[in-house]
């Protein structure tokens, strides 16, 4: 084999099963007996393209007998005390044996084994939630926020993948630590995921409903108005104008959070008072280049003749509008 290769999944699974068949022995004996097992199985795998014909249980039995170690018997398990753990492990081993014996369930199992990388990612995510969330917001979030959090998650992913793709550690305490980490991750995912998912779905629903149910701040005859463009009697677009309501309060477009606030004017500013930027769209951007061209501003000479030449604070309702509709703007001031 070449040194850069990692252990194929089937080989790692086979070695793991063999170890499980030996787990009634002292930890030192198991380590002694199975140290280098992956390397040997892997080389054999490369030679023959398969793991040994023997079942992991038979393989483990052959290892034991040739090594002069006691056979696995119920009495051996009983001598350690017929604890819950032993019967649980035995039930697990029996179940695995039945799964392996059936070609269909064995194929399913092999498929699941191939899906292990997905589990490695989930595990990293779970550990991330367990470690990071209490340190910061206290709220579990589906996806990390911020560069540091992403970097930390990336480190955890690398560690988790490494932990999964490397051979089972030789030391039994390391194997137990890994098992514990796995168990905690599974528990966390089983218990917390529904809550995190529903929280994430709710907040995304809220934010989407907020953006999709946008209500224009102005309306005319029940129809929403996003932009108001003001033209003088000559059809010239007026910039830097501001609307006030009947109480003298400026009609400010409500801006989304975090965007530039409208210029500060006293609430009861007098019309004609100078102010800063011109037309603003609802997002706080100056609306230039978006104004419509009046259909034919100069083609309405009657307006020009009859209208007051000087724009004043009491603007005539006859002032031309782009669409030709008289829009009774409360007050128009111009510079």
């Amino acid at each position: 084999m070449t040194s850069s290769q990692t252990v194929p999944v089937v080989v790692a699974a086979y070695a793991e099963s063999v170890r499980r068949e030996l787990d009634d022995l002292a930890a030192a004996d198991v380590d002694d007996l199975t140290e280098g097992l992956e390397a040997d199985l892997m080389e054999q795998f490369e030679d023959s393209g398969a793991v040994p014909d023997l079942s992991p249980a038979a393989y483990a039995a052959e290892l034991r007998s040739s090594a002069g170690l006691p056979e696995r018997t119920t009495s051996a398990a009983a001598s350690k005390g017929p604890g819950l753990r032993d019967s649980f492990l035995k039930a697990g081993a029996d179940f695995l044996g039945r799964v392996r014996a059936n070609p269909v369930s064995n194929a399913v199992l092999e498929f699941l084994i191939r899906l292990r990388p997905v589990w490695w990612l989930l595990r990293a995510w779970a550990i991330f939630q367990i470690i990071v969330t209490p340190l910061y917001t206290g709220n579990y979030v589906l996806i990390p926020r911020g560069l540091t959090a992403w970097a930390f998650l990336a480190v955890l992913v690398v560690l988790s993948v490494r932990m999964g793709s490397r051979p089972t550690p030789r030391r039994i305490w390391m194997r137990r630590a890994f098992t514990t980490a796995n168990a905690i991750s599974i528990l966390f995912i089983a218990i917390m995921t529904p809550a995190i998912l529903s929280h994430a779905l709710n907040s995304s629903y809220n934010s989407s409903s907020a953006s999709y149910n946008y209500i224009p701040p102005l309306s005319v005859n029940g129809a929403g108005v996003d932009h108001v463009f003001v033209y003088d009697k000559d059809g010239k677009l007026l910039r830097d104008v501001r609307f006030y309501d009947q109480d003298g309060s400026p009609l400010d477009m409500p801006l989304p959070d975090g965007l530039a606030a409208p210029q500060q004017l006293p609430a009861a500013a007098q019309p004609g008072e100078p102010f800063g930027p011109g037309l603003m769209d609802p997002y706080g951007q100056e609306a230039t280049g978006t104004e419509p061209t009046p259909s034919s501003p100069a083609s309405n000479p009657s307006d020009t003749e009859s209208g007051s030449a000087a724009p004043s604070s009491s603007a005539s309702p006859k002032a031309p509008t782009p669409a030709g509709k008289a829009s009774p703007a409360p007050t128009v001031s111009s510079k």
């Binding site: 007996l33 023997l54 052959e62 290892l63 090594a67």
Partner: peptide
């Protein structure tokens, strides 16, 4: 058998 050899080595 490979398992026999590994066990023998260990013994």
């Amino acid at each position: 058998g490979d398992a026999s050899v590994y066990g023998t080595l260990r013994r």
